[in-house]
Design a binder for these strands. Structure first.
Lengths: 61, 61
DNA sequence: GGTTGAAGTGCGATAAAATGCACTTTGTGG
DNA sequence: CCACAAAGTGCATTTTATCGCACTTCAACC
């Protein structure tokens, strides 16, 4: 997933990110592993911690 | 929210959208009302039904 | 005023997410 | 090989989202 790539690029551990984002380490691991259907709030926290924001786009065709 | 605007623009009811998207009417109402912390799957279904997709952007500054 | 369709809302039941904990695996440096 | 840090994973528990249902509100129309 993109999360891991971004996180490693920032040179921080899962623990670091989970603390900055304010989600549990367990949840972050699940999120990175892709075996999760996270809540919007959960995602926003993590994305925000990674310097990302969510946006809507037209789905081409 | 943007969902309602889009939906009314399409000229469909909440019931219509909920059925097309595959989520319960109750959930869609909550989603439009903004009193929800929906799951990613839930949002994708609705956004997809509205011709939208989600994207990540750099958070300015 | 009565009827109808769409939308808003509260509540209880259930499915699922989020968490904590214990443990395993993997890599890295001594 | 050993020690340590980071990551992966299974499980039990707690919390929360999702859903159905009943009821209310509101507007349009006859």
């Amino acid at each position: 997933m993109a999360i891991r790539k971004r996180r490693t690029l920032l040179g921080i551990t899962q623990r670091d990110l989970s603390e900055v984002a304010g989600v549990s380490l367990r949840s972050l691991k699940a999120l990175e592993a892709g075996d999760a259907n996270p809540s919007l709030g959960q995602m926003i926290k993590v994305f925000d911690a990674l310097g990302w924001k969510m946006a809507l786009e037209e789905r081409g065709k």
